[in-house]
Design a protein around this nucleic acid. Sequence first.
DNA 1: TTGTAAGCGTTATCAG
DNA 2: CTGATAACGCTTACAA
Lengths: 338, 338
Amino acid sequence: MNIGEIARRAGVSRSTVSYALTGKRPVSEETKRRIQAVIDELGYRPNASARALKEGRTRTIGLVIPPASQRLTDMQLGFVASVVDAAARADLDVLLSPSGGEHDRSFERVVTGRRVDGVILMEIRLEDDRVARLQQLGLPFVGIGRTRHPEDMSWVDVDYETLIAKCVHHLADLGHRQLALVNRSAELVAAGYGPGHRAQSGFDRAIAERGLRGVRVCCADDAQAGQSCLEQLLTEHPGLTAIATINEAAVSGMYRGLAEAGLSVPGDFSIAGVAARHWAENLHPPLTAADVPADELGARAVELLIQRVADPGTPQHHLLVAPPISLRGSTGPARPRD
Amino acid sequence: MNIGEIARRAGVSRSTVSYALTGKRPVSEETKRRIQAVIDELGYRPNASARALKEGRTRTIGLVIPPASQRLTDMQLGFVASVVDAAARADLDVLLSPSGGEHDRSFERVVTGRRVDGVILMEIRLEDDRVARLQQLGLPFVGIGRTRHPEDMSWVDVDYETLIAKCVHHLADLGHRQLALVNRSAELVAAGYGPGHRAQSGFDRAIAERGLRGVRVCCADDAQAGQSCLEQLLTEHPGLTAIATINEAAVSGMYRGLAEAGLSVPGDFSIAGVAARHWAENLHPPLTAADVPADELGARAVELLIQRVADPGTPQHHLLVAPPISLRGSTGPARPRD
DNA sequence: TTGTAAGCGTTATCAG
DNA sequence: CTGATAACGCTTACAA
């Protein structure tokens, strides 16, 4: 079923059908009706490949996510959901590319061959080959996250540095003097994962400003790692009474480790962090945390991308958000342990 | 940059470049080298739309997921991950469509207009409009899940009926006499969500076979709902000592509710269910559960789809899996409560 | 071993 | 207000 068939049956030319569909040229009510009738009867929809070939755009955006094999965090999932939602609202389709490694077929397929009009890139590293590749290709893209020198790209990001510093100040205000930063996995941080590094800077800065003692550790993205990480922290740092973290997936394990060490939260120990609201609220006790507005960030990223696709000459936009810390049940006044 | 430009610079015809690329006709080593050199230099990749238009296939599959706004469960996420992975291995791209409602633009866009070669459909209802639509369109598709009368479609599915029955038998063997089934949300079940209904049948059957007392409740997909659901169950059914569930997201809340009622797991109360292994293992105590092999199911679904795309006349395949129940720490001998 | 040319289904330009 | 026709970039008979 193609446009020619519709035209034939409606007794008009192909161009008239096309114009009736797109409205880019006036078509008399009468013919419009006749054409629509045939279309409805046969269930015709224009061939997307032909249209893309002719128009030079696909009405599709690429979404590059971390390799699917390693589980997505709740926050990452929130980004994916909001991007997909926002794209759907703008009548755009989303082509998924699970890629993170260096030489990646899926990524190459999606970004070359005019398969998409633009790309949203998640989980960006401080130095990121994919960013360089996209810039080289001249394909419009927007980062959820940013590189070390992000001036020449559009991005939206969470201000981990500020937020972790705020967590430290909040804990210091509560009287905590010895704090730990629980980061994400060592591999991720070693690979130059931006949030990991920026959280460290924020932590170091705030620790210094308040004259506290601080220790930084990495931890894999799951509850079991959180538990063993916490056990180790407790034995190695007897004076520790509080944790700041960006590792939402590990928090329930940390709670468990504390419980098994006979420490209550927030009575004996406090934890504050950066997390998806849904996740923070579902922990027990609910986590005092800066709630990452994944919905807003994803939607904004799509907006920026649409803009760049429409006019690649448009200036780069940057959106750095530092949501307020929601006080919940996981932080309280310090009570010395030793 | 197009194939004509490559041909011109390599001093050959467009067809030769095409054949050098696809290997569908012998090309002399010498010209092949020369062509490749030009391609490498200019970074040429064939235009996907043009190729799709000519070949009549897009090398892309659609993946229809539940509306992104409502959070995906860990198991659903596992399916998405494995489908995306398997597709990537087969050099297929994945177009995402978040749709569940009745009249859905995103779904229509993806399944019409020759945008994809086939579709994988998740979260299928007993009566599902989308299945009917796909059959009407004649677009190859494979379900992860199945309708009430699933003979005339290909699908892979988890045998919830058998698995929940097995859970009941396991709990009965441990001496439990009064059991509850915690289903997924009431809306989902009311909408004809297959696993919900099939779990009920399995539960009823096993309860009858063993002469037990059983009660069935629905529960939203989150920890807080799990907790309040459990509190209600405990007050309304004082003799209850065990739960079978397919609601993995609610389990941690049920644990919490039990703990706050002063009941230990598995000392005072047992829970068994169907869940993603990762999820079951990360609970505390780890959940005795049939571990849904999402990886295998997703990969098989992609395989089946590839087959159907290659030859639409191929017979429909059905794969119903009932993995063994992994005994973990959440079930133990019954100890009467009242 | 290579080249020529038709055609996939659209949209847009140019005529009428 | 409408029709013919030329692209868009590719693959693939058919010829040489």
